[in-house]
Amino acid sequence: MESVKPFARRFHGISHRAQCQRVWQPQSPVSYGEGTPLRLLSFNVQVGNRTERYHHYLTRCWQHLLPHRHRLDSLQQIAGLLRQYDLVALQEVDGGSLRSGYINQIEYLAQQGAFPYWYQQLNRNMGRFAQHSNGLLSRLPPESLEDHKLPGLIPGRGAIVSRYQIDGSQLLVIMLHLSLSRRSRNQQLSYIRSLMRDATHTVLMGDMNTQVAALLERSPLEGSGLIAAHSGVPTFPSWRPTRALDHILISPGIRVDKVDVLDFPLSDHLPVGLELRLAPPVH
């Protein structure tokens, strides 16, 4: 999938042309419009590692460095979930290194989930030991795709920005994984807000590492008009959720048919699913 135009250099990095890989041509194009909602999912998959208790961060830490026999089983279960969705934002996926058995997990999930389009954003390249990435899986061909490196004290955070035409309206989707520190997060959100100018319909989705009130009331997103698709339902830790860190934020012209934090405790985060429709364009 070719990007439609070059992208300008920005102060905190380069927004460059990107290509969405085509796995195969779908037999019949997916059509979204009246009567057909668009199904979105955001999921921090933690490289396919199962975490079921806090002490597993210590006892299973080696799984972030080395391959293990259960990881492929986890990916297959994740793929089974993803098949129910049309547009998926993945965080903490490996682009093909020792720990993943040299499997590009984004490509693997695209193939297993029957997604015709996928994109890998490599954010921290640790060579053969780790390929820390975000991922986009899509049943719709994007009109354009941008790969943005986000500012912050520690490099390695990014956002994937894609645009789609749906039933005569344009949808801007920004998939991201924000930093842990408030200072870096606010730098990143200021940068993200600059990408939202002139968008008719906007979706921000991903692991944002903070509560929704901090995002919408005490960050550069304040006054943006975005609202939370779900009301602060906790997503972390997956085995006993107490904190809402994973969010889908939407602009007011988007109608929500259904939103869920899914009971799928495979990673240390729970996935967030959303079905939406776009308000018709004003002529």
Rank of each mutant, 00 (worst) to 15 (best):
Q111C: 12
L75Y: 14
V93T: 03
A89F: 05
D73T: 15
M126K: 15
Q105F: 05
Q121R: 12
V93P: 02
Q112C: 12
D86A: 02
L122I: 05
I103H: 12
E107K: 14
Q77T: 14
L87T: 01
S74H: 14
R83Q: 11
S97N: 01
L90I: 06
Q76G: 14
S74E: 10
G101H: 07
W118K: 08
Y102R: 12
Y119D: 09
M126A: 12
F115D: 12
R83T: 00
G113K: 04
R83M: 04
P116W: 09
G96W: 02
L90M: 06
W118Y: 15
L122S: 09
L87G: 04
L90A: 03
Q111N: 11
G127K: 09
R99D: 07
A114R: 10
Q84P: 04
I106Y: 07
I78V: 15
A114N: 12
R124D: 09
F115T: 12
Q76P: 06
E92P: 02
G95Y: 01
G101A: 05
A110W: 09
R83G: 04
L75C: 13
D86L: 00
A79T: 07
L122G: 03
Y119S: 13
A89W: 04
L109T: 10
S100F: 07
Y117N: 13
P116A: 13
A79Q: 01
W118Q: 14
I103P: 09
N123M: 06
G101L: 05
Q91A: 14
S97T: 05
G127D: 11
N123H: 03
A89M: 04
Q91K: 00
A89D: 08
V88L: 04
A89H: 04
D73V: 15
G96H: 01
S97Q: 03
F115Y: 15
L90W: 08
L109Q: 10
L109I: 09
Q112P: 07
L87C: 04
Y85T: 02
L122D: 07
Y108R: 13
I106M: 09
V88D: 00
A89C: 15
L81H: 07
Q111M: 13
G95V: 00
I106G: 06
F115S: 13
Y85F: 11
Q105W: 06
L122E: 13
I106T: 15
L75D: 10
Q131H: 05
A89E: 08
I103A: 11
L90T: 00
Q121A: 15
Q120D: 10
I78A: 06
Q111A: 14
L82K: 04
L82C: 15
L75N: 05
G96I: 01
Q76C: 14
Q112H: 11
V88P: 01
Q112M: 12
L98Q: 03
V93N: 00
V88R: 01
Q120I: 00
R124H: 14
Q112E: 12
D73Y: 10
N104L: 07
S97W: 09
N104D: 15
S100R: 07
Q76F: 09
R128G: 11
Q111S: 13
S97R: 04
N104E: 09
L90G: 02
Q111K: 15
L87V: 01
E92K: 08
R124W: 14
Y117S: 11
Y102H: 12
Y108H: 13
L87Y: 08
S100M: 06
